[in-house]
Every structure is written in structure tokens, then in C-alpha cells.
């Protein structure tokens, strides 16, 4: 993470505050900072979202392309994550400075989306063994105010929810090759089923306690943080009429990893995983709520578009 310079006194102020469940910006240890989310902000992408979590700013664009499926998995599509740390965020990211951070985030996302229970790649299949959709998920980090992993995962899920994949009208088999005919109408498209897509929750160990959503200052006080990827509940992402048909999804861990030079005791590790799951569940329902409201506004053409003006 980008390093903030803090004096020893500032560090101990933050550390002791966390022990008493009181953080420097007035939150308790399990609170998130306020978020702003807007989907459909990039006109040339199939799906996009911009998420602002206090000072952290993330823009995600999803592009779809037609590809041939891998022979190991003929019935599944592909998904790939690219994270770009723009030097606008901090001068440290200039050149290849942000590469390590970007790699670790994209690696974590790829692993969290690995299981078909988290994100079913079968929905990206066009013709079994011949053609499939490949989703390129490009994440731009515009500003870096701590807790990048969580912000990225939220924005990615929102962008995937917003992604429209064109319908295939016809497929012609010409010898061994496939010719696809896609519809020109931009509204003639299908949406992805992203209800169970995972969210990442970073738990930062400061002193003896773990906090969610660390700010950049808090991140520099901690030596170890745990990132837990938790699958979402599909019920949160459908309207009340549809939800009767959708099965309740149980929150499961789809990926866990640690970052930072420190170590933790096993008990802290177990507690942190439980804390992460609780945080992810409330985050998931809040995200679902916001996305559904936005979609409804979109349908009734009442949506206010802010873009980058807000």
C-alpha cells in the first residue's frame, strides 16, 4: 500500500484508539466510511462503475470480447482482471511503482472469482467448445485513501451487475469455423447473474484488534492485514417478485490471504475471518439495495447522471 509518513505519537494515538473501539475519524472498529457509487459512467464499456469510498476512488470498466474457450473447460467463458494504479493517485505509482500492488489486487480478485459457486463462467458460453465471451475487467485506481481491495471488489461487482452482453442472433457453422451474428440494437442484450460474486473485506490488525475499512493512516500503523473474499447472496440482487425463485446463498469464503510482513495468532485469524464474513454480508445487502435502486431509476428514466462532476 502507499506509505503515509506518520510520527510515532500519531501512530500510538491511532493504535490506542482502536483498542477502545474508537477510531480517529469517529467510527467504531466495524464501521465502513461513506461510499458513493454510480454505474454506467463510461459510454464505451459494456459495463462500468465508479466507487468512491471516502478518499479512495476506483473506476471499473468491463469490456467483452469473443474468444475460444480453453480446452480444459469447453463450456465456460473467461474472465480476467487488470488493475492499473494511476500515478495521479500518488507519485509513488509513477513508472512501475504501483505494479506490485496492482498485481496483488488482481491476483486476489482472480482467486476470489475462481470458483463457479462464486461466479459461474458457464453463463458466458456461446457455443460449447467453440466460442465464449471473455470479460476484461479493467480497474483504474484514481485516488488512494486506504482499503483498495474492498473498494475494487465492490466496484467490480457493481460493474458486472451493469454489464450488458449482446444477444447472439444466429451462429453459422462453416466447416470447423463459427460465424456469429450479433444484434445491432444496444438494448437487445442480456444481463449477467452476479448475485453470488464475492466481495473482499480487508481486516487490518492494529494492536490486538482488527478493524474493517482501514484508512491510509491506519494501514501504516498495522503490520499485517487479512483479506477475506466472501460470496454474496443472490437474493440481495433481485426484485422482491423475482426473489421467490432465487435460492438463498450462504456466505462462504472464496479466498483468503494475508498481506504485510507480520504474523497473527490462530485465534485472531479465526476471529478475523468471522468478522470479515459479517462485514461482507452487510456490505453485500447494501450494495444490492443501491444497485437495484439505480436500475429502477434507469428503467423509469429518472436517473441523474453525475459522472465526474460530483
Amino acid at each position: 500500500m502507499a506509505v503515509k509518513l506518520l510520527s510515532e505519537t500519531e501512530k500510538s494515538f491511532i493504535t490506542y484508539g482502536v483498542q477502545d473501539d474508537f477510531r480517529s475519524d469517529g467510527r467504531s472498529n466495524i464501521d465502513y466510511r461513506p461510499m458513493e457509487l454510480e454505474t454506467d459512467v463510461v459510454s464505451h464499456a459494456n459495463g462500468s462503475a465508479r466507487l468512491r469510498l471516502a478518499n479512495t476512488d476506483v473506476l471499473v470498466g468491463v469490456k467483452t470480447e469473443v474468444d475460444t474457450p480453453s480446452p480444459d473447460n469447453p463450456g465456460a467463458g473467461k474472465i480476467e482482471f487488470f488493475v492499473d494504479c494511476s500515478a495521479n493517485a500518488t507519485p509513488e505509482f509513477e513508472g512501475r511503482g504501483g505494479e506490485q500492488l496492482a498485481n496483488s489486487i488482481s491476483n486476489m480478485m482472480q482467486r476470489a472469482y475462481h470458483s463457479s459457486q462464486a461466479f459461474n463462467l458457464k453463463q458466458l458460453c456461446i457455443l460449447d467448445g467453440k466460442q465464449c465471451w471473455k470479460l476484461y475487467i479493467d480497474v483504474l485506481i484514481l485516488e488512494c485513501g486506504g482499503n483498495l481491495c474492498d473498494a475494487v471488489s465492490l466496484a467490480v461487482k457493481a460493474a458486472l451487475f451493469n454489464t450488458r452482453i449482446p444477444f447472439v442472433k444466429a451462429a453459422l457453422m462453416d466447416g470447423g469455423n463459427v460465424d456469429l451474428q450479433l444484434s445491432d440494437d444496444p438494448y437487445d442484450c442480456k444481463l449477467l447473474d452476479v448475485g453470488s460474486a464475492p466481495l473482499l473485506v480487508t481486516l487490518c490488525k492494529i494492536g490486538e484488534k482488527c478493524v474493517v475499512d482501514p484508512s491510509a493512516e491506519e494501514e501504516s500503523c498495522s503490520v499485517i492485514s487479512l483479506v477475506v473474499g466472501v460470496t454474496g447472496n443472490p437474493k440481495n440482487y433481485c426484485t422482491p417478485e423475482e426473489s421467490a425463485k432465487v435460492a438463498e446463498g450462504k456466505a462462504k469464503c472464496s479466498a483468503i490471504s494475508m498481506s504485510g510482513p507480520g504474523s497473527v495468532a490462530t485465534k485472531t485469524l479465526k476471529d478475523a475471518i468471522n468478522q470479515g464474513i459479517v462485514a461482507a454480508q452487510s456490505l453485500d445487502s447494501a450494495l444490492g439495495h443501491a444497485l437495484l435502486r439505480e436500475r429502477k431509476e434507469n428503467v423509469t428514466l429518472k436517473k441523474h447522471s453525475y459522472g465526474f462532476l460530483k
Binding site: H114, S263, V264, L269
Partner: peptide
């Protein structure tokens, strides 16, 4: 792990597991 100090120095998980499963595995 660092067994004598009872510390976990690295932990990774891939797949999809529920919490009890993870705690048992730990």
C-alpha cells in the same frame, strides 16, 4: 506457522468453503 511462538505467518485459501470448514482446517 512459527510453532513455538504460536503464530501464523501465512495463510491462503482458494475455492469456496464455509466458515466451519476453514476453522477446522486451521
Amino acid at each position: 506457522t512459527l510453532s513455538e511462538l504460536k503464530q501464523v505467518s501465512h495463510f491462503t485459501q482458494i475455492g469456496n468453503l464455509d466458515v466451519e470448514c476453514v476453522t477446522n482446517a486451521i
